[in-house]
Simulated scan of single mutants.
Amino acid sequence: MKLKTKSPIGAEAIEAKGWIGAHRFLILRRISQAFFLSLFLIGPWFGLWWVKGNLSGSLTLGILPLTDPFIALQSLVAGHWPEMTALIGALIVGVTYALIGGRVYCSWVCPINPVTDAAHWLHDKLNMPKGWQPKANTRYYMLAMVLAVSAATGTIAWEFVNPISMLHRGLIFGVGFAWAFVLGVFVMDFVLARRGWCGHLCPVGAFYGLLGRGSVLRITADKRAACDDCMDCFAVCPEMHVITPALRGGDDDTPLILSPDCTNCGRCIDVCSVDVFHFTHRFDKTPSPGRVRTPSNSASGADKAA
Rank of each mutant, 00 (worst) to 15 (best):
L48C: 05
L147C: 08
G53A: 10
T244S: 14
G57V: 02
L37E: 01
G209A: 09
R103Q: 11
L247M: 11
L171D: 00
D275H: 10
V77M: 15
C198Q: 10
C262R: 09
D284W: 10
G176Q: 06
K304M: 09
G62T: 04
T96K: 00
V271Y: 03
C272E: 02
R282G: 13
F25M: 12
G102I: 09
M142P: 04
T85G: 01
D232I: 01
G94E: 06
E83R: 12
V93F: 14
A157N: 01
V115K: 11
P82R: 11
V204Q: 10
S56N: 14
I164A: 15
V175L: 11
P44K: 09
A246Y: 04
W45I: 13
V109D: 00
D189C: 09
D303R: 05
L183V: 14
A119H: 08
P295V: 01
D229N: 14
F35C: 09
G21V: 06
D270N: 10
N297D: 14
H241F: 12
S288H: 01
V115W: 11
T155A: 08
D303L: 08
V93C: 06
V292C: 12
K130N: 02
F35S: 12
G101S: 05
L59W: 02
H80R: 15
L167F: 07
G174A: 13
V204R: 15
V182T: 08
S298E: 12
L55W: 13
P111K: 02
A206S: 13
I92V: 15
C227N: 03
